[in-house]
């Protein structure tokens, strides 16, 4: 059960996007609070972008 969960790419997805958002936020700002706010913005953008791609792929899979 646990193995099947950790074998899913979606389990590892947060570990990929959160550091990316944090690093990108930190390259734009110097103050920790501003970095956090920018990281949240980037997390939102990343999730929207990847979610849109996932939705298109799922839709195409369903149609085919």
């Amino acid at each position: 059960m646990i193995s099947s969960v950790t074998d899913s790419i979606f389990f590892h997805f947060p570990m990929l996007v959160m550091p990316i958002a944090l690093v990108y936020g930190a390259t734009r700002h110097e103050h920790p609070w501003n970095i956090l706010v920018e990281a949240c913005r980037w997390l939102y953008r990343l999730l929207m972008f990847l979610g849109t791609i996932a939705a298109v792929v799922f839709l195409m899979t369903w149609l085919i």
């Binding site: 570990m15 550091p19 990316i20 944090l22 690093v23 930190a26």
Partner: peptide, 12 residues
Amino acid sequence: KAGLFCFCVYFL
């Protein structure tokens, strides 16, 4: 920022 960058990059 040094700690944040080091942690995030090495974590990935």
